[in-house]
């Protein structure tokens, strides 16, 4: 039941998330992540957590949606 949330006030368009999780994150014309909002399948949760940890701005969160 995991989804990816972006704290837009923190995101600085570094773009690492899109490299680490290209299956679910692309970048818009300004370099900000466009996140596929569907629930993450189990085999992507690990990559999503890596992307969240790698974010220099700590703007990504992998969490359960209803706790958001």
């Amino acid at each position: 039941m995991s989804t990816i949330d972006v704290d837009w006030t923190r995101c600085d368009a570094h773009g690492l998330c899109s490299r680490l999780l290209p299956e679910r994150i692309t970048l818009d014309e300004w370099g900000f992540p466009v996140v596929d909002g569907r629930e993450l399948p189990d085999d992507l949760v690990r990559a999503a957590r890596s992307a969240a940890l790698a974010c220099p701005a700590l703007a990504l969160r992998v969490g359960s949606h209803d706790a958001g």
Partner: peptide
Amino acid sequence: GQCGPCFFGLPA
């Protein structure tokens, strides 16, 4: 000016 998509998107 806090959020990129708003800050860049609205002027565009």
